[in-house]
Design a protein around this nucleic acid. Sequence first.
DNA 1: GCAATCTGTTACTGTTTCAGTAACTAATAC
DNA 2: GTATTAGTTACTGAAACAGTAACAGATTGC
Lengths: 136, 136
Amino acid sequence: MGYDITYATATHILAVMAFYEDEWVTSSTMAESIQTNPGLVRRVLSQLSDAGLVITKPGPQGGARLARSTNEITLAEVYEAVVEQPVLKTSNREPHESCRVSRGIGGALEGVFRDAEEAMKDQLQKTTLDQIMKKI
Amino acid sequence: MGYDITYATATHILAVMAFYEDEWVTSSTMAESIQTNPGLVRRVLSQLSDAGLVITKPGPQGGARLARSTNEITLAEVYEAVVEQPVLKTSNREPHESCRVSRGIGGALEGVFRDAEEAMKDQLQKTTLDQIMKKI
DNA sequence: GCAATCTGTTACTGTTTCAGTAACTAATAC
DNA sequence: GTATTAGTTACTGAAACAGTAACAGATTGC
């Protein structure tokens, strides 16, 4: 499959903020830990901000910090914040109209794929940022 | 994320074979239903064959057919057969050695991501090809 | 007010991965 | 022996992503 690591990056970003506790952390500091550049960090950070997981502040002495305590942030919320496309995708090929299988397979799979992704999210719901920090 | 639809294609392939029951179905027939070309079908088909889900036969009157009945093939097996990369990926950036978060985040996430994918597979295990066919 | 610092956003580039495709080999049936 | 089929390989074009740079907008402190 593709090589999208945005979700891992987002979790790393939150982990750095958790590490610095209540300080304002700049995108440069996070980029150094992640080994990438501040622009990329800010791009993901703005998604986390939109989702209400972090608070940001521009200007000197600004940066970002967690909006809640680490045991109130689950990996499912992070997933919701940054993963936009379903992981199991149905085809967007035009169906062969005279074939019943071709016409029906898309609809048949959609619900199954959605349920499967939901099960994955339910599992992610069980892990909090706090637990990740304890493993580090 | 990426746009890998191999899994949906594999399920479609199996559905066509289920539709034709005990006949040998050629890659051309399946390609017509899927609206793609036979080469792509055969590429996925060989993975399904390696996994023991289908039986193939070359030559005239050859083709492919299901190795088992439709209620003995689960979508989890199809997943195992054709999905090679984990859906949730950790970064392969080199860690920043002097940062504890950077060094530890990869290992911390790996187990969580594996568990999440396992939960998705467990859900897929609950759906058989038979159930897909009934929806079509 | 002014300069410095930081977020937020946009645009661009190079790389990677995939679907699609064609062409070949090997096996089988008639 | 010929035609038909799976299996495999190599190539192409398109799409998505990481990385990067640059700029606009907000805030701080002087």
